[in-house]
Amino acid sequence: MLSWESKKIGYTGLLKSTLKLAKKAISNAGIKPDEIGLIVHGGVFREHFRTEPAFATHIQGDLGIHCHGIGLDSQSCFSFDVTDGSCSPHVAIQSIADLLPALPTDYALLCIGDDRPTKHCDWEYESYCVVAVIGLSGDGPKCESISYDNSNLVPNLTTIGYFDKSVKGNNFASAGTVEFLEPQSSKNFFQGHQNWLSGKHMHEFLQLVNKHDDTLEHCIVDRSGKSTTAKWVF
């Protein structure tokens, strides 16, 4: 991870914040926007429960990265979204790690965050926007491995979007009751609150990065009970 930026955002405005942070992160990484060849966004909630196109294509388009026709030898960028509840950041990092070596580019943009979908949604979450430039080489924290654990999954703890006829608008609902695990932190381990959204998980993790010079395991436990753990080496 060559550079990163994160900030708390309001109910909406994820795209605007992502663009602002992306420009800063790209500049801090010492590269030009056109050197980015892969953009992956991770999150769950999108404005008006948008399903397509991928949010990452809006980031690419508004940053103007390789927004030109396909030439026989022109550079290009590929954008898509991944999602897995609060574990989305780790899925996005893993997807970048999988694809970047095979693509004709050295740099990827990782974007994490959620928007309050509509004004009808009760929004108890703190929304954070996180952007990072990830390179195949260079200085910065290195994600050595990501492990996955579905053994504590409770499959009926789902979240769905639906049309609420009583207010004539779209809302979301989370099924079941969860006894939330409290955040845990020790010298080389950090686990945020189970009810945080993806952006907050990554934001809080990034606050710890500069305090470490060896390793840090970052565990995210989703509301559904499944978890992912990324091992970072500094």
């Binding site: 399903t51 991928a54 991944v82 999602t83 897995d84 509840g85 989305s88 997807s95 979240t159 499944k226």
Partner: peptide, 28 residues
């Protein structure tokens, strides 16, 4: 609209594949 956890997680649970990594990809 199913939002969370990933739909892949629920498919793996139905198919009794507990050890698989599961996530959704969205690209229209």
């Amino acid at each position: 609209q199913h939002l969370s956890p990933s739909f892949a997680t629920l498919i793996a649970d139905e198919l009794k594949i507990p050890g698989a990594q599961t996530f959704d990809v969205s690209n229209a």
